[in-house]
Simulated assay, not measured.
Amino acid sequence: MAVNGIKSLRNLPVTSGLGASRAFSSAAKSKKTKGAAASDAPKQSTLSKEVKSTTVVGANILKDGTDPKILPDSEYPEWLWRLLDKKPALSELRRKNIETLPYEDLKRFVKLDNRARIKENNTTRAKN
């Protein structure tokens, strides 16, 4: 059945777009320029400053939910404040004495050292 449909499409006359021209009305052109100018302008927020300072705007992922409220710092766990701290690089950890490293730095050293050895082994065994 699909083959018959394709055969019928082959029999349709093909017209080239060389002779045909397409024109737009002046109203369509004016709407296009108005839309472009409006999209370039910065959008004004409809939320009040009070709402912005007490809620996390845009953090809601549920259809029927609401944005979460901002809590005082004491309500959040301690690890949250250490997420953005800079961690030492492998070269810096190699310069330090391993016996004096704290547990977290020692764990990071082992992980980064293993990763570096795996990469080195992969490059030496790579087919060239």
Rank of each mutant, 00 (worst) to 15 (best):
K49H: 05
G19H: 10
L62R: 07
D67E: 14
R108P: 04
G58P: 06
L12S: 01
D40A: 14
T15G: 12
T55W: 06
N114G: 06
K29H: 04
A116M: 11
K107I: 02
P102V: 02
T54E: 15
E50W: 06
A36Y: 10
A36L: 13
Q44N: 10
P72W: 11
T54Y: 07
E99Q: 03
L83C: 08
L80F: 13
L90D: 03
A41V: 13
K63I: 08
G17S: 15
D64R: 03
K69Q: 09
E75Q: 12
E78V: 06
K111D: 09
S39W: 04
V14N: 11
A23D: 11
A36N: 08
L101N: 01
L112H: 02
G65Q: 09
L90W: 03
F24V: 05
S21D: 10
A23N: 10
R95I: 00
A89N: 04
Y103L: 06
G19K: 13
R115F: 02
W81E: 10
T33I: 07
Q44I: 13
L83W: 00
D67G: 07
N97D: 09
V56F: 15
S74L: 09
T33Q: 12
S53M: 08
P13H: 11
D113F: 05
A41C: 01
F24I: 04
